[in-house]
């Protein structure tokens, strides 16, 4: 959970100062900050449970790509605004279902983080859904770009529901809720769900991250690795 929010938060931050409209720029930065805030909670808890005196920052800045357990979807590059918003939409739809499930988790600290995050992510999903609908059902060009974004990113959807031993929840059970919201939104956006359910795998197991993650981490980690004693 913490690696997903960290990697996507960092990706969204890349837009800061470059978004197509001032309002979208601030909105994306807000979402990025929400995700980084959630990262501090998840990785803080993970570091504490590991019990080796590590902090959330140690986990964020001093692990290499193969130790990251994020979904392949979130490490995909921003490309254009349409791809960024489609990636956000698909992740938000999964993220909200996952957090709702985790609010009932037996571990009180996990449940508390989920309860705090679910409010933020409810808004993320509302915003990305509206944007996907507006651009999908917009001009001929915006429709074409959003359909291309959906076609590009759909192969990264399946991994979100592929179970492995480290899962905090039954991820397969999240699919109906995800499908219901995604399909209704795509219909309204006049976008067509791709036929193929081929799914890239290997992000959340760490076995086969895409080449993009290493480049992103190099940027993100360079300062604390070059100056290990640096303080804010």
């Amino acid at each position: 959970m913490g690696d997903n929010t960290l990697v996507l938060g960092q990706r969204l931050s890349e837009w800061c100062g470059h978004a197509p409209a001032l309002e979208e720029d601030i909105a994306m930065a807000n979402t990025a900050l929400d995700l980084i805030g959630q990262t501090q909670l998840w990785l803080g808890l993970a570091a504490e449970r590991k019990g080796q005196g590590h902090s959330a920052d140690d986990l964020a800045y001093h692990r290499d790509a193969w130790d990251f357990r994020n979904l392949l979807l979130v490490e995909q590059p921003n490309r254009d605004f349409g791809v960024t918003m489609m990636r956000q939409f698909l992740f938000d739809c999964w993220h909200l279902e996952a957090l709702k499930a985790l609010t009932a988790h037996a571990d009180a600290e996990i449940s508390a983080i989920a309860q705090k995050s679910v409010k933020e992510v409810t808004y993320h999903r509302e915003r990305s859904t509206d944007t996907v609908i507006a651009l999908g059902d917009g001009t001929e060009q915006s429709h074409k770009k959003m359909q291309a974004a959906l076609d590009r990113l759909w192969p990264y959807v399946g991994e979100m529901f592929t179970a492995d031993d480290d899962d905090l929840m039954d991820v397969a059970a999240l699919r109906p809720g995800f499908d219901a919201h995604v399909m209704a939104s795509l219909t309204e956006a006049t976008l067509t769900r791709p036929d193929s359910d081929f799914a890239h795998q290997g992000g959340k197991t760490g076995a086969r991250h895409s080449e993009h993650l290493g480049h992103m981490l190099a940027t993100m980690q360079s300062l604390p690795r070059s100056y290990p004693d640096a303080k804010w």
Binding site: E23, I26, A27, N30, Y123, E126, R127, D130, A134
Partner: peptide
């Protein structure tokens, strides 16, 4: 959209 932008800005 304006409501959402106002919320964010």
């Amino acid at each position: 959209h304006a409501i959402q932008n106002a919320r964010d800005v």
